[in-house]
């Protein structure tokens, strides 16, 4: 492929920790060949060269928390062929979406002596709340091999091959003992999307859901089970649902039910929402 014909890749950041875009730089063995295959024309964390669009593929990290960022996102969408949101912040608001369940002015007063200097929205929301997104890659952080797969797939015009099953499937494949059944640990594996390789159970701890909620997750029944049989308190349930992907709808629904102290069998279905 002639150098000028290479797909143009851009990386953008909103409110985030930089960890998901860092995953690209953490591809130590692959980075230089990726840079041959794609023209990385906008990646401020890595380069002073920041070319204007249009871009063939845009990777977008972070959540939308300011009016200015909302406008910037709209411009990015207009300039981009495929727009891929990467990570828990971009796909489910990130940890900072905990503000969505609090009074943000209280938050600002807690952290800053002069909250009036700040400009921030009441909420932290996923990219797909504002613009059309071609693909959402889960994870806090994303898995670098999944990120490579997504980038290379869009670069060659095919859909990414990313498993949408639960962490439990990876856990079984890895041969882990089930930490929920055997040890009674509060494991969110059954409702969490695969991708991490069932890392936490492999390290003897329950999954805490950093890869976000899987499609058709039965959030209510799992929480109900953990509360009934494994000593999970309402407060623990609420905190585990409002953590790394708090704006994911199936988690929000059950967290709200926890708020009402009303996690009952009849009301807890997630309704098949996609996280």
């Amino acid at each position: 492929m002639a150098r000028s014909d290479r797909p143009r890749l851009a990386v953008f950041k909103f409110a985030s920790c930089d960890g998901c875009q860092l995953s690209l730089l953490d591809c130590e063995d692959e980075l230089l060949s990726i840079a041959e295959r794609l023209d990385i024309v906008h990646f401020p964390e890595a380069s002073r060269r920041m070319l204007t669009g249009p871009y063939d593929i845009a990777l977008v990290e972070g959540s939308i928390t300011t009016a200015h960022d909302r406008e910037r996102l709209t411009e990015i969408r207009e300039q981009s062929g495929f727009l891929v949101s990467i990570g828990a912040c971009a796909t489910a608001g990130g940890l900072q979406a905990m503000r969505n369940f609090a009074d943000v002015s209280d938050y600002a007063r807690t952290v800053y002596p002069h909250p009036e200097y700040l400009s921030t929205l009441e909420t932290s929301t996923p990219i797909a709340d504002y613009v059309a997104v071609d693909y959402e890659l889960h994870g806090c952080p994303v898995d670098k091999y999944q990120l490579l797969e997504v980038v290379l797939a869009f670069a060659s015009g095919r859909r990414p091959q990313i498993a949408r099953e639960s962490v439990c499937m990876e856990c079984k494949a890895r041969g882990n003992v089930c930490v929920l059944v055997a040890q009674g640990q509060h494991c969110l594996g059954p409702i969490t999307q695969a991708g991490c390789g069932a890392l936490c159970p492999a390290y003897s701890r329950g999954c805490y859901g950093c890869f976000g909620v899987k499609e058709q997750a039965q959030v209510g029944p799992l929480i109900d089970h953990l509360r009934a049989h494994h000593g999970m308190t309402l407060s623990q349930a609420r905190r585990s649902l409002r953590a790394y992907n708090p704006a994911a709808e199936p988690l929000q629904i059950i967290a709200l039910q926890c708020d009402k102290d009303d996690v009952s069998g009849s009301k807890k279905g997630s309704g098949g929402h996609d996280g």
Partner: peptide, 28 residues
Amino acid sequence: EPPRFFEAFLQGRALTEAPDITARICGI
């Protein structure tokens, strides 16, 4: 960099959650 208010949403979390939550301040 938009404020993310970590110190605020640590309030009300269990002390055992602090390491995983504060990790998310910085990916590096």
